[in-house]
Write a protein that binds this DNA or RNA. Structure first.
Length: 563
RNA sequence: GCCCUCGUAGCUCAGCUGGAUAGAGCAGCCGCCUUCUAAGCGGCCGGUCGCAGGUUCGAGUCCUGCCGAGGGCGCCA
């Protein structure tokens, strides 16, 4: 069989070429202005040194204003004053010459400086969102074009992708989308473990089923082996056919999930290209490979690993580690500046040795990151369903997709942090009920489209923003939507830096909630709504659409126009 | 024994790298369809943030030690 190294065409490069101007997609300027005014005030009050970073946050409680700072608490020592006294001086100073949009400055609690702003600051947010649109709003350039290779799923080519793999698949892809939005040049990659005993067991299992027998004890016992064996033509190479079958199947199902790779990289190709020998030689050249007990070892303890690791067994066979080191070396050689691997928790013990190897080869350990996804526990009728390809207990990803489609699958898996063990309720995910958060979010988008449709039918056209009086937007529901939108740039940046796509999910749910509230209480068209207010609200609807579109796109969930 | 992750409402989970009275969805109970989709909106109920110390103006968040759950610790992959 040929080297399975089909390189796919790159992902829509045109869309990524528009390098964002730093100021665009940046966090709200209000915060910067407030921070600046606080620094000025501190300087004016003779506080020295003035802290370089003044922290501003959005208070959890409305009565604490729109923005809040703890500078007075943090700088009270340097200022030689009590926190509340310093806060009061700052507040007085700022009240005398209030920054833009500021209505009042108050001191509260132990010494917080709270800013209450006029709704105009949110109208500015609305303007930014609509003018910048889906492509530009909330697109912080964190990566500056840095080449990042994201490897995820990398299931053995011995069977279909199952419900457990879906976590790595949705996470890896959403992370890739986040990195792309934040200015990274992302390469999605799947490593095919097509070498070793698993492949032999797989081929033997197929062969056994083909002749109506049972697979070997250490073989694969799933129903799919029986099905595939029946499909397998007579006289074909079981190993080669099965390999291709598994690969095609995985690629098809992942594709249906919306996951497309730039590269499917074959482990076997490393043997054929000599990359493994080169890697071993390289490790020796760096003095971190040595021979003992008839085997070749990696001195990984020099780099913080618990113990040294075997590279070449005494029988001459390679361990799993060696080609994997060669593979990671290869990814750097192909131009990646940073590697991010998404691994299941059962591989976490492997991180130290891989990092040690790469460090020994001269790479900065910070350029090799591993995101560990905790296990997925599947439940049906409240009872745990075990997944094992070997025993044949399998919930195929394909079946989930058949039942609910990619959107519900993706959103369900992206609901939580990867650090927590996830319980996926198969009854719930496969039920098209309102329990499923995906419908709540998509429904908001459908409602937006519905409003736009009705507007069109009634001959109402949305005017350019310059002709719209956004000052009419003062309803608490309207402001809620805008407040939520104002957070998106920060949320995107944070989610990217923390490799936490679930923060996007949380935000999207919040925006959908705010929009549903607005929809319920604020009619865009109808009795008692002036033409001017209709225009202002249409602008708000458009801003909501942009926000939802950005969020859903980051999650890889579609934004339907009707439901 | 050592390492990683987790422990927050009946259930599933957030909690912005230390902030103010700890949030959301679901489940349960009670309301709201003559307007753009009720797959929606509002209200009520529900908490010793596993336990014990420590750090400081301030701890669900940071440190230490226990307890509990899951996953690792191979010349397996």
């Amino acid at each position: 069989m040929g080297v399975a190294l089909p390189v796919r065409p790159g992902r829509a490069p045109a869309a990524r070429l528009g390098v964002p101007v730093p100021s665009e997609g940046a966090p709200p300027v209000v915060r910067d202005a407030l921070a600046e005014s606080l620094r000025d005030a501190l300087a004016a009050l003779g506080v020295s040194p003035v802290p370089a970073q003044v922290h501003l946050e959005r208070p959890a409680r409305r009565e604490h204003g729109d923005w809040s700072s703890n500078v007075a608490l943090a700088a009270s020592k340097a200022a030689g004053r009590k926190p509340r006294d310093l806060a009061q001086e700052l507040a007085d100073h700022l009240t005398a010459a209030p920054p833009p949009h500021v209505e009042s400055v108050e001191v509260a609690g132990p010494g917080f400086v709270n800013f209450r702003l006029r709704p105009t600051w949110l109208h500015d947010v609305l303007r930014d969102v609509v003018e910048q649109g889906t492509d530009t709003f909330a697109r912080p350039d964190l990566g500056h074009g840095r080449k990042v290779n994201v490897e995820f799923v990398s299931a053995n080519p011995t069977g279909p992708v199952h419900a457990g793999h879906a976590r790595g698949a949705t996470y890896g892809d959403a992370l890739a989308r986040l990195l792309e939005r934040c200015g990274h040049d992302v390469h999605r990659e799947f490593y095919i473990n097509d070498r070793g005993v698993q492949m032999d067991a797989f081929a033997q299992s197929l062969a056994a089923r083909k002749t109506g027998g049972d697979p070997p004890e250490n073989g694969y016992h799933g129903q799919y082996i029986i099905d595939w064996a029946a499909e397998m033509p007579d006289g074909t190479d079981h190993s080669a056919w099965g390999y291709q079958k598994a690969l095609d199947d995985q690629r098809e199902v992942l594709g249906r999930l919306g996951v497309e790779y730039d590269t499917w990289f074959s482990e076997r190709s490393l043997v054929e290209s000599g990359a493994i020998e080169e890697t071993l030689a390289d490790l020796r050249a760096h003095g971190v490979a040595y021979d003992a007990d008839g085997a070749t070892w990696l001195r990984s303890t020099d780099y913080g690993d618990d113990k040294d690791r075997v590279l070449v067994k005494s029988d001459g066979e390679l361990t799993y580690l060696t080609p994997d080191i060669a593979y990671h070396r290869e990814k750097f050689a192909r131009g990646a500046e940073q590697l991010i691997d998404v691994w299941g928790a059962d591989h976490h013990g492997y991180v130290a040795r891989m990092r040690a190897a790469l460090q020994a080869l001269g790479h900065d350990p910070a350029d090799f990151e591993v995101a560990i996804t905790q296990m997925v526990r599947l439940e049906r009728h409240g009872v745990e369903v075990k997944i094992s390809k070997r025993t044949g207990d399998l919930i195929e990803l394909r079946d989930l997709l058949d039942e609910v489609g990619p959107d519900a699958v993706r959103l369900t898996y992206l609901l939580q942090s990867i650090d927590t063990r996830q319980t996926v309720d198969l009854d719930l995910i496969t039920s098209k009920s309102m329990d499923n958060p995906v419908f709540y979010v998509q429904y908001a988008h459908a409602r937006i489209h519905s409003i736009e449709k009705v507007a069109r039918e009634r001959g109402v056209t949305r005017l350019p923003l310059v002709d719209v009086d956004l000052g009419l937007l003062v309803h608490e529901r309207e402001l809620d939507v805008l407040r939520t939108l104002s957070e998106l740039p920060d949320v995107v940046e944070l989610a990217c830096n923390e490799r936490a796509p679930h923060k996007i999910t949380a935000w999207v749910r919040e925006l959908a909630g705010a929009f549903h509230g607005f929809y319920h209480d604020c009619y865009v068209m109808g009795e008692g709504v002036s033409a001017e207010l209709t225009q202002a609200r249409l602008a708000l609807v458009e801003a909501s659409r942009v926000g939802l579109a950005i969020g859903l796109d980051l999650l890889g969930v579609s934004a339907p126009e009707s439901m």
